[in-house]
Design a binder for these strands. Sequence first.
DNA 1: TTAGGGTTAG
Length: 684
Amino acid sequence: MPFLNTNSLASLVESAVSTHSSHLGRAAHAQIIKTLDAPLPSFLSNHLVNMYSKLDLPNSALLVLSLTPTRSVVTWTSLIAGSVQNGHFAPALLHFANMLRECIQPNDFTFPCAFKASASLLFPVTGKQVHAIAVKAGQIRDVFVGCGCFDMYCKTGLWDDASQVFDEIPQRNIVMWNAYMSNAVLGGRPRHAIVKFMDFLGVGGKPDSITFCAFLNACSDMWVLELGRQLHGFVIRYGFGNDVSVMNGLIDFYGKCRDVASSAIVFDRISRRNDVSWCSMMAVYMQNDEEEKACEVFLQVRKVGLEPNDFMVSTVLSACAGLSGFELGRSVHALAVRICVEGNIFVGSALVDMYGKCGIINDAERIFEEMTNRNSVTWNAMISGYAHQGHADMALALFEDMRSDNGEITPNYVTLVCLLSACSRAGAVQKGIDIFESMRKRFGIEPGPEHYACVVDLLGRAGLVEHAYEFVKKMPFQPTISVWGALLGACRMYRKPELGKIAADNLFKLDPNDSGNHVVLSNMFAAAGRWEEATLVRKEMKEVGIKKGTGYSWITVKNAVHVFHAKDTSHERNSEIQGMLAKLRKEMEEAGYNPDTNFALFDLEEEEKISEVWYHSEKIALAFGLIAIPPGVPIRITKNLRICGDCHSAIKFISGIVGREIIVRDNNRFHRFKDGLCSCRDYW
DNA sequence: TTAGGGTTAG
């Protein structure tokens, strides 16, 4: 080793920080000890404290600090900044306190760290103390300190204090204005952000890309498509048409305002897309229920030879979960392992969710067990995986584990929804009611519309339909779509057209464009032999211009997706499919199966109705699956609408005849058929 | 010191 002077030793330490290599850092430290006698020059000690702290080796950092006889503001600030950077906010504040105890004055680098730590811990009281110290030290007028202070008040919800700080800062730079706008959006005051933007222009300010992004966020929160469009023009005029950040912001904005086409146009016109552009486009498709398109974007990423990142992987996994796209999901899992992102908490949670929704509960469990970091989303995903399978006992057991895990992660709003839906799917009525009634007291969670909807579903599914209606009437707020939807579902299941009409009428008011509700109601009347009323509902539907969407079912075989619509004969293996359908029909008839023709269009003759239900897309997909998928492998079908009642009972029956596991995911839930049974009890 | 994208329910 050549002789190293103190400057080159310092740069060795710096390179350990910049490459984030603790190995290099330790080696540099060893070299320093070898080369120099103690005590080290203070600037080198500072470098070491900074290095260990940034490398998230807090004990080593503290050790060096305690061995440094002359600790300066730089030494302490290095320690504090590293702690904050690595998310250790409470220790950062402790170090800050110790520094003051040593009578060392914090500087313009220290205060922002202390503010950030207070903000992250949501400690407004501590934040106020730091503020007082900064005022006393005469530092508050510094833009960095002032901005940190302002940000702290925003993040801890003290908006008035924040505004006061903003007004008192003498020289506001663009960062300060941007901070105001983005915090206003984050704090649910998008209108404030827009007003501030106007003020900013009024004082001759020149917006930058962050300003535009903040403005766009405000627009998407307020759903003001027109205002955002105007800003789009403004962006171009200001010469930001090639700024990838602003373009990404526009993709996101249009997507949130449900103008997917504009998002796609912006995306297509970006000459140099970055990771965020791709991710944003995927997210837009996801937010607008176009999972297939999201998958396509992901495949395009791979096609152009880009390495996907953790964001893309978690998004595409959730698309797979929505589509029950188990094959793609599995291959994305393999990819995640290869690019080393499977340890990421978002990716892990998305994997648990994907496997759970695809019904591969063992793999979901395995991923869950192997995850070293779990957050409430991870737990909820696993609980809902059990719920989807109808394993209320497992869901409840996991919930208990969650509560006793380490106290860090507590059940939240969604956890309770998952649990209640697990009870409802498993028919655990009393258990569900107990949980619902105790949620405020035991878990401190105020029951919301989703929880009420679960209880309605719970009661309704157990046949207590009138009870369910009484429960709805006693709700402390207006019942939502999901509440009436759950009641309508129960009425359909137990054939209660009168009550069903009440539920449906409410749904028509709240959700006039959903054709599904009309179809359910008319089928319900048809099932009760009340053809006139059934026809009337269909007529109304036509008059108002509501169309029943086309039903599609799809199935993946060897990475190719095969899509079928009703009466589809276009598949290249159509003759085999028809042969299989005929064979199934014969075997089922011999085994005594009666098709339920209430689900066919009711103005047909009985004979026609039978053939009508026989050629529903899910049955065709199933026939194809039986031909193309080797025995022993489960057949997975996805349908974009609700599975029809006859198909549900037919598939149940078929699963017994052919001795195969059949999994159908429709737009409502998940059905696993095996040995003539289905995981969801009494669906119709 | 400001910002752009992700995971859980129904």
